[in-house]
Amino acid sequence: MIQFIQIVFFLLTLIGVGVIVSTKNVIHSVYALALVLVSLAGIYVLLNAELLAIVQILLYAGGVVILLVFGVMMTRRGSGETLISESKNSILALIISLAIFLLLVYLFSNAEVEAVNISSIDQVKEIGVSFLTDHIVAFELIAFVLLVALVGAAYLAKMSSNE
């Protein structure tokens, strides 16, 4: 049975995606992205992936969107000018994306997905433990990558501001 809350989140996601696709204003698309991300977090909650939802909101909706907004701000010609971007190849892009969508739908139609059980385990603790036991290597690497990305981004950004 489809629950109401699902529909809400679905609709929010769809609306957000629709806005992204149809708008010409860059900043509007970033805002719509934020909406999509938040609604996706809600869907994660419904999928019994609480930590993921929290991490999504924290990092995606908080970090990535802010970064994108900063990017928009830094790449404007003059102040007060809205960044308008027009699209090209829309028909071809539509065809391709439609094709991929249909293919994926066809693929997924044969999939079997089990129903979600709301479990009562402490997900945060479990995932934390698994980080440090099963996925320790990935964890360390992720930390390393983060460090490198941080340093690199900072350096690149510094370079661009030194004129």
Binding site: N89, L92, A93, I96, A99, I100, L103, Y106, L107
Partner: peptide, 16 residues
């Protein structure tokens, strides 16, 4: 990217 995706779609069609 377009070409990449086209070939991806084609391969997928072919496999499926």
């Amino acid at each position: 990217i377009i070409w990449l995706l086209i070939s991806f779609v084609l391969i997928l069609i072919w496999i499926l």
